[in-house]
Design a protein around this nucleic acid. Sequence first.
DNA 1: GTGAGCGCTAACCATTGGAAAGTACCCACT
DNA 2: AGTGGGTACTTTCCAATGGTTAGCGCTCAC
Lengths: 132, 132
Amino acid sequence: MSVSPQVVGGPVRRPDVNEKLCPSRVVLEHVTSRWGVLVLAALLERSYRFSELRRAIGGVSEKMLAQTLQTLERDGFVNRDAKPVIPPRVDYSLTNLGREAGEQVWALARWTERRLGDVERARSEYDEARTS
Amino acid sequence: MSVSPQVVGGPVRRPDVNEKLCPSRVVLEHVTSRWGVLVLAALLERSYRFSELRRAIGGVSEKMLAQTLQTLERDGFVNRDAKPVIPPRVDYSLTNLGREAGEQVWALARWTERRLGDVERARSEYDEARTS
DNA sequence: GTGAGCGCTAACCATTGGAAAGTACCCACT
DNA sequence: AGTGGGTACTTTCCAATGGTTAGCGCTCAC
């Protein structure tokens, strides 16, 4: 017999990223991590093989890509499908959960690209205000 | 006389966060940075003073909060309003640009809190699959 | 047979981030 | 009169994080 959540055990407050020790904070850090954002956004469009993804995302090292993918897989965002062939072939894709995250970071990435001009203008103003 | 953008100068491709050297990537890193996300999300709800914000966001050091706010101010996301009184009083709020970013990271933070249970379940499965 | 590609892992070092203390000023309390 | 606390930071130092490089075991193309 299973019981409904939070009937057993101590008081489990609802997650709050503003609390220092809340586990939701580390999940948020995984999806907003430097490479996590780009991996989720890329996989939203289609699935990729490891080194294909590495070429798609400029500047990732193999170590960081592997690490990022492992973290995202463990969190249930990414599916890893390793075909036992030679040479090895490993396909990465998003789970349903990962797709929800991917949609949001994808939107954020596109927004950033669109607004880059505004940011650069703001920076010029800021810098000029203190060099004079 | 001013000319329209990209008429003068070399070929300026449209921003792409997947390119190693694209400036949009560093902007994305600023908004998705560990403390940047939490600051933008907090300021979306209301404006805050420095140490009030520090208390609201559990675990930020003063150094990192100051640094994050300076970066976000320079990028044009945050307004800094320092009243010349003693003791010092500095209010931080979002610009229009910052509000657009804030809305997205706020949604991401709330989504993460809601989905925490799913992530924890995925992790248990993942971990169990390799300890056995 | 030599070089490239595959998907990683391990070792090493540079950069980043956090903890703690310093700063300069004022107010409230004892 | 002195002690402690609050304001908004900056500086210093050390630990943790991230990046670079090399290695591995295997296969195919040239």
